[in-house]
């Protein structure tokens, strides 16, 4: 049986998904990246290998996320795709006819507008990370509430308080202030959910025509409080797909399937890459005033890839060796 692997290495989490030819999810892994993308991919592969159905063969692999290029080298990707396209593709697979994708990840948030199955507009947060997973994590930890229960608590609120959600630091000050004057914790959490949704819609969602069906994905979609806040603000139903955590990886796996269909064979290095010893090193090129930071990726001492130079002079490995 041919299966396809999708790998999404983001700032906070690394997700891997295995799908079959009919795009059904066979297995997935969700791990923290912890600033070590290569190790996270290797660990994820090790875990995923144990979940491989018997007789399954990986016939294609795609990578996405902010470390997509790096992950692509490590696993031998057939396609390396940006996370906006990967998320849009996945949403279209799971909810056919989707017109709006809301995605809240670890440190980024995006909105994707589709019409007739085609992306027509998108936006990604630029200067502000308020409202993303990292901030919610931090607040949950500060309040001593497991992040899993954060959303359910918000739903119990009777009178959500108003929190200034424009900036995550000021939001925190405001929350502390609301705690100090005695508001119940549920009301503060619900207020925070409202504030984050408001900030998202005013920033990332500014000027976008949000039409149903709306799909909400990314790590934060697990938070029922945020989902409820979206439904309240948008006055429409918001779908959270079952594999909302790993939608980027799902999109990458699907794209790998079409890439392999076009080129014939996969470049997948095999699950054994989890035991390989990859090394990365960097140096500053002093060839011109651009001072590019060049990254080397090597496997057991052999250079696999190198990037980062503007002029491309370091990227032709044969010439260098």
């Amino acid at each position: 049986m041919d299966v396809y692997l999708g790998v999404d290495v983001g700032s906070v989490s690394t997700n891997l998904v295995l799908i079959d030819r009919d795009n059904r999810v066979l297995a997935f892994e969700y791990l923290r990246t912890r600033g070590q993308p290569i190790q996270a991919v290797q660990e994820g592969l090790k875990l995923l290998e144990q979940k491989m159905p018997s007789g399954a063969v990986v016939a294609g692999v795609g990578t996405t996320g902010s470390a997509r290029t790096l992950a692509g080298v490590v696993v031998g990707a057939d396609t390396v795709k940006n996370e906006i396209t990967a998320h849009a593709v996945a949403a279209g697979l799971v909810v056919p006819g989707v017109q709006t994708v809301l995605e809240l990840g670890g440190q980024d948030s995006k909105i994707i507008i589709l019409r007739h199955g085609v992306v027509i507009d998108f936006a990604m947060n630029t200067i502000c990370a308020a409202g993303t997973g990292s901030f919610l994590d931090h607040q949950a930890a500060r309040l001593g509430i497991p992040i899993e229960e954060f959303g359910t608590l918000a739903l119990r609120a009777r009178n959500p308080v108003h929190i200034a959600g424009r900036c995550s630091v000021f939001a925190e000050s405001d929350m502390i202030h609301k705690q100090q004057i005695g508001h119940p914790i549920e009301d503060i959490i619900a207020g925070l959910c409202d504030a984050l949704v408001r900030n998202y819609l005013n920033n990332v969602g500014k000027g976008k025509e949000i039409l149903p069906p709306v799909v909400f994905q990314g790590g934060v979609a697990a938070n029922v409080g945020i989902k409820a806040a979206f439904e309240k603000a948008l006055q429409m139903e918001v779908h959270v797909p079952p594999h909302h955590l790993v939608m980027g990886a799902l999109g990458a796996a699907y794209l790998a399937q079409s890439a392999v269909a076009k080129k014939g064979a996969t470049n997948f290095r095999g699950f054994s890459v989890s035991d390989f010893d990859y090394q990365t090193s960097t140096f500053e090129c002093k060839g011109c005033p651009n001072i590019c930071e060049i990254v080397n990726i090597s496997l057991d001492g052999t250079l696999l890839a190198r990037w980062g130079s503007r002029c491309g002079k370091w990227e032709h490995l044969e010439e260098q060796q």
Binding site: N82, T85, V118, V119, M124, T126
Partner: peptide, 17 residues
């Protein structure tokens, strides 16, 4: 990186269209 990601996605969008 942020610019690269957005441009790549924008190119995908235009190609699909």
């Amino acid at each position: 990186t942020g610019i690269q990601t957005r441009l790549e996605a924008f190119v995908d969008l235009m190609e699909q269209r």
